[in-house]
Every structure is written in structure tokens, then in C-alpha cells.
Design a protein around this nucleic acid. Structure first.
Length: 717
DNA sequence: CCCCATGGTGTTTTT
DNA sequence: CACCATGGGG
């Protein structure tokens, strides 16, 4: 029998045993948040709550599974079966599919993934002939991003563009038109994108009595993890699901809010008690994960943040080594230094206890190359997802058509490889098929043998009943020649990916749930999961995880913080929290890497890098400074200061003169009749180094270094 | 009219 | 590496 009192601290115990009525748990990083949820599950069930009356909403399905697995350990094997656990989107899908055709919903739920949605935007743009030949017209994913952000934040497009895409305001009308066209496209073809899932579920629960009844009768206890990263609809969904007096536990940490970019709203945490009057508040502040030196660093990072709920983490683990700050010569020598450090750490920790974290998926490429050279195994999270790869999507398109013959995005993809069939022909063919215009189809088939083959295959596939795995086997047989022809140089690698897809498919009974899971959740690749491998991950994908040793790379301006986060103060704050999340993943060893120069892939030049402001603002005593020598190897720097004094200008003469030699600097700023200085909301006053075509300036900001900034964001003195 | 090959250009984070 | 404009060819 589990002894809840001795296994938990006082605050955790309080959260675990408060099972009637709403409770909000503010859980600092590493404060035993997962433990609290796991014990609460066990507590509820040991008190006689039926597992199938519990709904556990987490950020990833993996997190839900891990929590269930750990709770099972406390309860014994069968204790948890029937519990509903997963993401908001996954849960929304499973609810919606129980009420097909309700409230104008399509009978078959077809989910558009990011790629489908982007392609739809492109098609709408071409159809409406918007931005033809205009190179600065926003790209399809930029447009989709704006549309999605407006929906998630529940603001008008105009408002979102005011706030964060000032330079695109001149395309406001076109983007508005695209947004409408996109919405009617989805409507017309019965497609749901990620955002629709949430809004449709809300409508269903709000307006469809039987659905609400079902949810209320079934789910008596609701737990929501990572509440700081929910958006407005998600908060309303919780309210709808819980009813007024609901038994809800929300767990979150405002300091770890890192999804504002997709519409998450930290205020949800603050207004939880308004939404659920009388909600109990529990704070978990004692950290069990990291050593004090690591917390000193993370507290220092948060020190300058604008936080609603101030918190300082503390721990009893007073000993431990100081985080290292390693300055390498370039980003390529950084990869080398990372690998050596990993090898060094692997003498103390298993590889599975070490992680390399970075801001964007592609930042790890040099490290991946270095690891491959050495033959060191690693797993990568984030970046291009398994199910986003072209060949996987190709194969899935056939399956989607077997499930829903009117799935237009899938239809286009299935016909993509046929010579002589482009967007127009494909669209006409689709219309003809849906309308039942056999003559048109016959004619087209007579002209094109390949087309006939594909359509025949699709008919055969649709006719054959079988498990997802069996259907996929048929698809792969048909697709093999296409694969070899389409990916001449690397089809064997892709074929391995398709085999992996087969293995995933074999775990599913129904085609519906296989297709939904693959687009809604990152399916884990159980088989090629090496026992003991290093982890490479984006910081976003590392959320909620922890390792004994963590290495963070590319802590330079434009990478971490991302170049996209430099114009708005809120974005920079989110980058800061992102770094906080990254550092708090570490239990014992933390190493931060700052390359001095970056190799620029497209122009082949090596450019000086500027330290991340989060690093240059750190107090000198929270890190141990190391430096890479020209002759190789890392050395302790005597001078302990991690970086330049942020108040000192970094205007080094060689930087200025080297940039003045580039062709960008043809126009002298002084020739334009101003002082040569300007102001920026975030970087303050800076010197204009060059005027660059299309309304941009190259400016040197003391403490931040050289930047290229749109004139719109600058006040010229 | 529609497709396809080509080359120039620019690369966040995720459900 | 993927997107998008462009122009030759069917």
C-alpha cells in the first residue's frame, strides 16, 4: 500500500488529496509536478474512483502514457485501465468522431495536417491570383501562421497583424481574402485543421445536449497538465467539461510558458480562480531535480523576467558543480566541443541521461554530423517530424483516400507523381469523380496509363477490408517504384522510414485511429529506439523531460534568442523563458555553448556572432567560464566574467569596417541627412552602419551588436 | 492552356 | 532543402 503522507511533501500531499472541487497547482520546474499528478491518479483510484471517469489532458501523449505507467506501478497492473489520457487535440478528435454529422460536421472526420493546410493556402492564392509575381508577398506558411494565430488568440487578423506583422499590413486585404477562402475550402471539402478540432469540440459541448451529457456523466475528475500553455478555447473547454462545481486540477508554471507564439495565454493560470470560484491554490516551490549551482543560474535568468507570480526555486542539493559556459571559436568547432564533452560526461552518466538542446531543429546538424563520424547513437526530437516527411505523407495519402474518397489534399498528393497531371488537371479530375462524371474520367485515363493505374489501385484499396497494417502493405507495394523514381538518391533511407511506419501501423485496429494518431501525436518508434542513446532535442520538445547532464548550444543572437524574436519585447521574454526551461532540465551538469563565429550556409561566409543577451546579462559568478584554444581543447579562463559588460558598447572597429566593405553599405547613412543614429524599442540607441535595400538598416547597438532591422521598427534621429 | 525544368532566394518553436 | 517565379515545350 502506498503511503501518501511519507512519499510526498506537504504541498504535494495537499494537491493530491484535494479531490473535491477545483484546485490550481503552481509547480516550479522540477518541483515534483509529475509525481503529484501520478500520486493523485493513484489516490483517486485507491479511494474507489473508477479509472474511466478520469480525464488526463497533457501536452503530449507520451507524457500521459508515462504518467499512467508510473501510476500503475503504485497501483498494480490493471488499476488504471479505462482512463482517458492524451492531448486536447487527440481528445477532441475522439469526442467528435462519436457524433458524426452533428452541427454541420462532416460524417467522416478528415484532419488536415500543417502541410495540407499550407498547400490549401497556396492553392487559394493561385486561384485568387493574389500576390502574383510579388516577391515580398508573404509565404504560405506565414499566411497560415497569421490565420491560425488570429484564431487561437481570438483576435481579428488586422489586430494580429498590427501587433506582430507590421511590415505585412499592406497585404491585409489579400490575407483577409485568403483567410476566407481557406475557411470555405475546408467547409466545402469537410476538412478540419488543428484549430477546428478545438472549436468544434467547444461547439459540440455547448450546443449539443447529448454530447455534454455524455461528457459530464463520464468524466468526474479532470486533470490538466502544462496549463500555462493552453489557449482561450482550451480553458473554456475545461470549464465546459467540468461543469460549474467541477473536480478539476490544473497544473502549470507561468515561468515555463513557451507557446504564446501559437496563441497560448498565460493569463489562463491567473484567471483559473475566477473561472472556478473557490479554487484551492497550491504552490510547489521546492526543487527536487537540480543542484543549487544550476538553480542559481536559472534564478538569475528569471531575475530579469517580467513574471506575474514571482518565484525563486530552492533545493536541499547544495553541492554540485557550477554550470560551465564554453566559448568556442566557431559553430563547427562547437560541434566538436559538444561531442568531446558528451564523451567526457558519458564516463559518469549513461548516454540516455545526457541531452543536447537547441532552439531550432536545424541548429543541431553540425553536432549530428560529428556524432555520426564517431558512431555515437542519438535520438532526435523536434525539427522535421517523422510524419511530415514527403514519402510518409505520400503513403498516408493513399490510406486517407481509402478512408475518405473525397479527401482532396490526399487526392492531390496521390496523383502528384504522375507525369502530365498538374494542379489543374487534378482539380478537374477530382470534380469529375465527386460528381460522377464517368466520361471525363474515362477520357483522362485513356490518355494517361499511369493515371488509370493509380485510380484502379485506389479502387482496389478501398474495396479490400483489412487492418491498417494490411492496407499499408498494399500501398507500399504499389508505391515502391514511385519511391525509387521520385527519390533517386536516397530512397533506401526513406524505405526504412516506411518500414517503420508499417511497424507503427501494426499496433492499430482501425484505420481512423491510426490516421488520427499519426497526424495528432508524434508516434513513438518503439523498435529503433536504441537502449542507450544520447538525446538531441529542441527546447520545445524537451519540455517536461529531464536529464542528469544537459548541454545547450548556439547561445548567440539570432539563434537563441531566435532572429524572429527581436522586434517585440514579449517575444524576447518568451525566449528567456525558453532558456529557463532548457536549463531547468538539468539535474547535475549543465554546459552552455557560445560560438564566436557562425558559418553562413548560403553565402559560404563566416560571420561574427554576438553573445545571446541572456548570457551577457548573467552575473559573472553563476558560471564557470571555459574557452576553446586555436590549438584545440578547452581551458578554464582565468577571467571569470562570462561576457562583456552589457553596458559597454561592442562597437569594435574591425566589425564596422568589415561590414563597410560589403556591397550593402554602398549608401552612406550620413548622406541621407540624419545624424547616423537611431532608436529601437528593445535595443535602445544604436549607430546606423549601412542602409540596405528594401527599407532596412544595419545598425550597431551597444551590448547587442550588429543587426539588420526594418526601418518601420526604428526611430531615426 | 497547362506542365515541368530551372535557378534564385531564404530557413523557429508545434498540435 | 523547399519555395516560388519564369519560360520553353507539349
Amino acid at each position: 500500500m502506498t503511503d501518501f503522507k511519507t512519499d510526498l511533501n506537504e504541498a504535494q500531499y495537499e494537491a493530491v488529496t484535494h479531490t473535491d472541487g477545483p484546485v490550481l497547482v503552481i509547480a516550479g520546474a522540477g518541483s515534483g509536478k509529475t509525481r503529484t499528478i501520478v500520486y493523485r491518479l493513484a489516490h483517486l483510484i485507491s479511494r474507489g474512483t473508477a479509472p474511466d471517469s478520469i480525464l488526463l489532458l497533457t501536452f503530449t501523449r507520451k507524457a500521459a502514457q508515462e504518467m499512467q505507467a508510473r501510476a500503475s506501478l503504485l497501483l498494480g497492473a490493471a488499476g488504471l485501465s479505462g482512463l482517458t489520457g492524451g492531448t486536447f487535440h487527440g481528445f477532441a478528435f475522439s469526442m467528435l468522431r462519436r457524433f458524426p454529422g452533428t452541427l454541420g460536421m462532416p460524417a467522416k472526420l478528415t484532419i488536415m495536417d500543417q502541410g495540407d493546410a499550407e498547400n490549401a493556402i497556396r492553392d487559394m492564392r493561385d486561384m485568387l491570383k493574389l500576390g502574383k509575381g510579388d516577391r515580398s508577398f508573404p509565404k504560405k506558411n506565414t499566411v497560415l501562421g497569421l490565420i491560425s494565430k488570429a484564431r487561437n488568440k481570438e483576435l481579428s487578423l488586422a489586430q494580429v497583424m498590427q501587433d506582430e506583422a507590421f511590415h505585412l499590413l499592406r497585404y491585409e486585404d489579400e490575407i483577409g481574402e485568403l483567410s476566407q477562402a481557406y475557411a470555405s475550402f475546408k467547409q466545402k471539402h469537410g476538412l478540419l485543421d488543428y484549430d477546428d478540432l478545438l472549436f468544434r469540440l467547444e461547439a459540440l459541448l455547448r450546443d449539443h445536449e447529448p454530447a455534454r451529457e455524455l461528457a459530464w456523466r463520464r468524466y468526474r475528475h479532470i486533470m490538466v497538465d502544462e496549463y500555462q500553455d493552453t489557449n482561450l478555447v482550451q480553458a473554456r473547454l475545461i470549464q465546459l467539461l467540468a461543469g460549474q462545481s467541477g473536480n478539476v486540477m490544473a497544473v502549470g508554471d507561468d515561468a515555463q510558458s513557451i507557446y504564446a507564439f501559437r496563441g497560448a495565454n498565460v493569463h489562463n493560470i491567473l484567471s483559473f480562480q475566477k473561472m472556478f470560484p473557490g479554487a484551492k491554490l497550491v504552490r510547489l516551490e521546492r526543487n527536487y531535480r537540480s543542484t543549487q549551482p544550476i538553480l542559481d543560474l536559472t534564478n538569475a535568468i528569471l531575475e530579469q523576467a517580467e513574471l506575474r507570480i514571482k518565484k525563486t526555486l530552492y533545493t536541499e542539493r547544495k553541492d554540485g558543480s557550477k554550470p560551465r559556459l564554453v566559448r568556442t571559436i566557431s559553430d563547427r568547432s562547437q560541434a566538436q566541443a559538444v561531442v568531446s564533452r558528451v564523451v567526457e560526461l558519458s564516463r559518469t552518466y549513461p548516454l540516455s541521461e545526457i541531452a543536447v538542446l537547441f532552439r531550432a531543429g536545424y541548429h543541431s546538424f553540425p553536432v549530428e554530423i560529428a556524432l555520426n563520424k564517431l558512431g555515437l547513437k542519438f535520438r532526435k526530437f523536434g525539427g522535421i517530424r517523422f510524419s511530415e516527411a514527403a514519402h510518409i505523407r505520400d503513403a498516408l495519402a493513399f490510406l486517407r483516400l481509402a478512408q475518405n474518397p473525397a479527401d482532396l489534399p490526399a487526392f492531390k498528393r496521390a496523383l502528384d507523381h504522375i507525369k502530365g497531371v498538374g494542379p489543374k488537371t487534378c482539380a478537374r479530375l477530382y470534380e469529375a469523380l465527386v460528381q460522377g462524371d464517368e466520361k471525363h474520367v474515362k477520357k483522362a485515363c485513356a490518355k494517361n496509363k499511369d493515371l488509370e493505374n493509380v485510380l484502379e489501385f485506389l479502387d482496389r484499396l478501398r474495396g479490400s477490408q483489412g487492418s491498417p497494417a494490411r492496407l499499408l502493405a498494399q500501398v507500399l507495394e504499389f508505391y515502391q517504384p514511385v519511391l525509387e523514381n521520385k527519390f533517386l538518391d536516397d530512397w533506401p533511407r526513406r524505405q526504412a522510414g516506411l518500414e517503420q511506419l508499417s511497424r507503427i501501423a501494426s499496433g492499430y485496429e482501425s484505420l481512423d485511429s491510426f490516421l488520427a494518431d499519426i497526424s495528432l501525436e508524434n508516434p513513438e518508434n518503439k523498435d529503433d529506439d536504441p537502449e542507450d542513446a544520447l538525446t538531441l532535442s529542441t527546447v520545445h520538445s524537451a519540455k517536461g523531460l529531464e536529464w542528469s547532464a544537459v548541454l545547450i548550444i548556439d547561445l548567440v543572437q539570432d539563434r537563441f534568442p531566435s532572429r524572429h524574436a527581436l522586434t517585440r519585447a514579449e517575444d524576447l521574454e518568451e525566449e528567456r523563458r525558453l532558456l529557463y526551461v532548457a536549463c531547468t532540465r538539468a539535474r547535475e551538469e549543465l554546459t552552455l555553448f557560445v560560438p564566436s563565429v557562425l558559418y553562413n550556409q548560403y553565402n559560404g561566409a563566416t560571420e561574427p556572432a554576438v553573445d545571446s543577451p541572456f548570457i551577457s546579462c548573467l552575473p559573472y559568478n553563476v558560471v564557470e567560464a571555459w574557452r576553446e584554444n586555436y590549438t584545440g581543447g578547452l581551458f578554464r579562463t582565468n577571467d571569470a566574467a562570462p561576457a562583456r559588460d552589457p553596458d559597454q558598447p561592442t562597437e569594435s572597429p574591425n566589425l564596422v569596417s568589415s561590414s563597410a566593405q560589403t556591397s550593402e553599405a554602398m549608401t552612406s547613412p550620413l548622406a541621407q541627412g540624419h545624424s547616423g543614429y537611431c532608436r529601437h524599442k528593445i535595443f535602445g540607441r544604436g549607430k546606423i552602419i549601412a542602409v540596405i535595400p528594401e527599407g532596412k538598416y544595419r545598425v550597431n547597438f551597444p551590448g547587442f551588436g550588429l543587426k539588420v532591422i526594418l526601418a518601420d521598427y526604428l526611430d531615426i534621429e
